[in-house]
Design a binder for these strands. Structure first.
Lengths: 346, 346
DNA sequence: CTGTTAGCGCTTTCAA
DNA sequence: TTGAAAGCGCTAACAG
């Protein structure tokens, strides 16, 4: 077992050196106006000399609040989450809160433990991007602190959330493919248990209905969890004689897998999908991407949470739902339309 | 100002319900063997009923150790840092430590504040990827807790660090370009104040010397801080009549900028650089990338730190330096060599 | 303007 | 096997 360190100087030590009580040191450090300038200076001198740092742990205990909010995400390596984290941090800092980040590293089953851990460490609130569809651990968490969901709606919980225009974005991007004349568009999606998955499928479907095109069910693949599974699914579809003339991908990792499949097959067909990504514009592929501001999701979530913290004494406000807009981006060569069929790469 | 929450049930409350003292509750929760089975069960029942969670803040205060280590990075959106963070977390968890992540969001001047904040929150040790070359704040930090540096060496500090084979990797990648006959290779690098910058330039230079090629100083651009500045620098070089026949980039963001410049110029020449990146293999560009395991940097750093924490009572060990190996990866079409000159894109 | 007292929730130590 | 007392470092509330 690892030894724990005892500790450095305390306010008492500082006080002794500055010839005042610990209480006065506390006042000086808190910028309490009721301290003479002379004393103030002596205290600061003592602080410097001892290299004293106030113990926030003791402070939290005494004050009954840690000044921390917890953020739980699945995968920081995905820019979506790291941008979201930046947004949370930006707003939290502004309001004097510190953010403690927890990363479930793609393991859904770790999420409840992370949430509990954060609560044990006295975070005053939580922002969570739930990895799975089970939210019981979040209901438990809500017994202790306010919880705000990001990018996923609550399932049986009465709390705030920040969502992307999933339906709208998917419909718009799909419609753009349909407008180019594509009628055989493959859908590559994450597990239907995820809200974003079903919602984006709904948008995909709605665009078809509006265009009077019947979607081909055999071109719909859900349950893709990462770039590798997406690549395989895409490869299988591309291999079919009656394969798709365009692809729709529900997130950046799935797009990556699909792009890799296209590359390996040595062909290309138009691809639409959620999430813009780095270098998407230099791939030279016909891409239609649904882009949105992940930072903004984080900022909004932080605002909702802090607002709830401010209201802690009064009536808890009714659950709110904030939506972050999407916009469609076009990259690469203009689509040749479905007639051209799969195009060999240059 | 934000109200602070009072608090949920305490051990005292649990004890009252289970008809034991708080002390016994503490023992049960700690798995202390000296408690009767019957009592144990009553306590657990009370814990469940109240939804009790042990207050880690109070615990830390009493124990004189928080069980947390701090990690400071500049930019979580860069996969290098998020992978590193994963590695740290992996090892820390294994040893029962929690990781508190702090992100300076590219603002070098925020780093000292983050470090101080973590110390105030009683982290038992720190892992830092220093953003700049000034390390005075780290010297201050070392007065309180052990500090391990990742990806940068200490400058005037006596402490452990984990480094990449910067020199070796740069030399090897450059050598591969030289072997293809290139003699006019541009160097696009980050500010020389950063260790990785100068070290990678040294490798670049050494490869030239070994090949008997005189590097052209006018092709060397240092001080590039992001993709945008790199893009501009690359564009300027490509625009010259006596421009380079190949590029060397010192990190992923600079590579991204250079690739975009190539794309906009509508030409391509071989590019070598540090850091592999997503979709590098489907760009269809002749790339020579120096790849390494960022997770492993994090893991090693965590090991060094935890080892130091274990030795806290005894003699502090001498500063150690661990190196993580690099390997060179080739992507895209075989280089046509310098004779071919800039090649129009397909 | 400054100090004393008490206690945040927990655990170590000592006693029963 | 269990409990009482003391105190980790800090600060609100009350003196002086």
């Amino acid at each position: 077992m690892t030894a724990r360190r005892g500790g450095g100087p305390t306010m008492h030590d500082v006080g002794k050196l500055a010839q005042v009580s610990a209480m006065t040191v506390s006042r000086v450090l808190k910028n309490d106006p009721g301290v003479s300038q002379a004393t103030r200076e002596r205290v600061f001198a003592a602080v410097d000399q001892l290299g004293y740092r106030r113990n926030e742990t003791a402070r939290s205990l005494r004050l009954g609040g840690s000044g921390m909010i917890g953020l739980v995400v699945t995968n920081l390596a995905n820019p979506f989450y790291s941008r979201l984290a930046l947004g949370v941090q930006e707003v939290a800092t502004e309001y004097g809160f510190r953010v403690v980040l927890s990363n479930s590293a793609e393991q859904v089953e770790k999420e409840p433990g992370l949430v509990d851990g954060l609560i044990d460490h006295q975070v005053e609130g939580l922002i969570v991007v739930p990895a799975g569809s089970r939210q019981k651990h979040l209901a438990d968490a809500m017994r202790h602190v306010p919880v705000v969901l990001a990018a996923r709606p609550p399932a049986g919980l009465d709390t705030d959330c920040v969502l992307v225009e999933d339906f709208h974005g998917a419909r718009e991007a799909t419609a753009s493919l349909l407008a180019e004349g594509h009628t055989r568009i493959a859908f590559l999606g994450n597990p239907p248990a995820l809200y974003t998955g079903t919602e984006r499928l709904r948008g995909f479907w709605a665009a078809h209905e509006e265009a009077g095109v019947e979607p081909d069910n055999t071109l719909i693949r859900q349950g893709l969890v990462d770039a590798a599974t997406a690549e395989q699914a895409a490869a299988e579809l591309l291999d079919r004689a009656d394969g798709p003339t365009a692809l729709f991908c529900t997130n950046n990792r799935i797009s990556h897998g699909a792009i890799r499949a296209l590359h390996k097959a040595g062909t290309t067909i138009p691809l639409a999908g959620f999430d813009d990504f780095e270098l998407s514009d230099v791939l030279g592929l016909p891409l239609t991407l649904v882009s949105y501001d992940a930072d903004e999701i984080g900022r909004q979530a932080a605002r909702l949470l802090i607002d709830r913290l401010d209201q802690r004494d009064g009536q808890p406000p009714a659950a709110r739902r904030v939506t972050v807009p999407t916009r469609v981006i076009r990259h690469g060569p203009p689509s040749a339309g479905p007639g051209a069929g799969p195009r060999p790469l240059a």
